[in-house]
């Protein structure tokens, strides 16, 4: 059963790797950030699968922390790095 859970986790890890290509190629900042957000969700799933697969319930705590803090980076991105219709820049661009 361990190999089944880890196998599914491996597929998710490959999903992350494919998503990394989007981070590398992504034309806009939003593409890159959305891909990173996908990794956070994927990471939670991988951690839960590993927790089941190896029978170490402590890993679920790590997944919990990831689930909580995954949103932090995207909030920082939306509030600080990315602006759609903010005030005009004071220096000419």
């Amino acid at each position: 059963m361990t190999s089944f859970y880890v196998g599914v986790a491996l597929v998710l890890l490959l999903t992350i790797i494919i998503g990394l290509l989007r981070v590398l190629w992504g034309p806009t900042a939003a593409d890159r950030m959305m891909a990173a957000q996908l990794f956070s969700t994927c990471g939670v799933a991988i951690l839960l699968l590993l927790a089941r697969g190896f029978g170490q319930l402590i890993i679920e705590d790590v997944a919990l922390v990831f689930a909580l803090l995954g949103a932090l980076a995207i909030v920082a991105f939306v509030r600080r790095a990315w602006k759609t219709d903010g005030p005009k820049p004071d220096k000419g661009a």
Binding site: L69, L72, A76
Partner: peptide, 16 residues
């Protein structure tokens, strides 16, 4: 670890 999570909560509030 607990302090880091509390710090993250503080960062979220500062960002808002």
């Amino acid at each position: 670890q607990a302090g880091a999570i509390l710090g993250a909560a503080g960062v979220l509030l500062i960002l808002t």
